[in-house]
Design a binder for these strands. Structure first.
Lengths: 109, 109
DNA sequence: CAGAATCCGCGTCGATACTG
DNA sequence: CAGTATCGACGCGGATTCTG
C-alpha cells in the first residue's frame, strides 16, 4: 500500500513545499500575472506585510520564487517564478479549472 | 490584474476546498490505493483519530469523499473518492511528479 | 474496528506601528 | 516603496483515554 509517512513519499515532499496558507496563492498570482512587485502582490492577495514578507523569504530559500532588487529611490523589488515553480504552471491551471467546477456546483444548489 | 481576493476566484475556491494539513494527503492515498478502511487510512497517513475523523467528516460534507458503512461486527467503514474529487486525480499525480523532481534536486546538493 | 471526548501547547496568522 | 518589530488571539493539531 502506498503510504504518506515515508520520508521520500513524493506527495509528502510536494505538500511540504507548498504548506501554509499563502504559498499556493502567491504562486497562482505569479503564474497568472507574471513578474510582480511587492505591493502588487500584496494587493492581489489581500495579505499582510508580515505574512507576505515571511512567506516570500521562505519561498526564495526553497527556490520557489526569484527576487530581484533594483537599487532605486523609491525602492523596487520584483518577484517571479523560478524554473522549479514554473513547472507548477500546468498544475496550477488545472487546479484552478477544478475550482471553477466547484464554483458552478455551488451555484446550482 | 488577476486577483485572489475575489470571492469567485477559482483558485481561492479550490484552495478553500483542500485547506488544512490533511485533505490533500487523504485524497492522495485514496487516489493511489482506491477504497480504504478507516484504520488503513490512519496507517497510511500517520494521523491521529481526532484529525482523521474530523477531516473525513468535513470532506464528506463537502462532497470530497464517499463514506460507506457496513453494519457488521466488528464495524467496517470504507472511504473512497467521489466524482468531484476523482477529477483531481490527474492533478494529484502531476503534483506528485513535481514532488519527485524536488526530491531529486535535494539529493544533488 | 471506528470513532468520540477531553485537555492543552504551540505555531500560525493578523493588526498596528514604525523604518531606510 | 518595501519591508521590520512587537504583541496577542485563535484554533489547528497532537497525546491520551474511553466507548459501542
Amino acid at each position: 500500500m502506498i503510504v504518506f509517512t515515508d520520508e521520500t513519499c513524493p506527495m509528502r515532499v510536494a505538500c511540504r513545499a507548498i504548506e501554509g496558507k499563502w504559498k499556493l496563492p502567491i504562486l497562482y498570482v505569479l503564474c497568472e500575472n507574471g513578474t510582480l512587485r511587492y505591493n502588487e502582490l500584496k494587493k492581489a492577495l489581500g495579505i499582510t506585510n508580515v505574512m507576505l514578507s515571511n512567506t516570500l523569504k521562505e519561498m526564495e530559500q526553497e527556490g520557489l520564487v526569484a527576487r530581484v532588487q533594483y537599487n532605486e529611490i523609491p525602492p523596487r523589488v520584483e518577484y517571479s517564478l523560478t524554473e522549479v515553480s514554473g513547472a507548477l504552471l500546468p498544475i496550477v491551471q488545472a487546479f484552478c479549472a477544478w475550482g471553477e467546477t466547484l464554483l458552478s456546483l455551488e451555484e446550482t444548489d
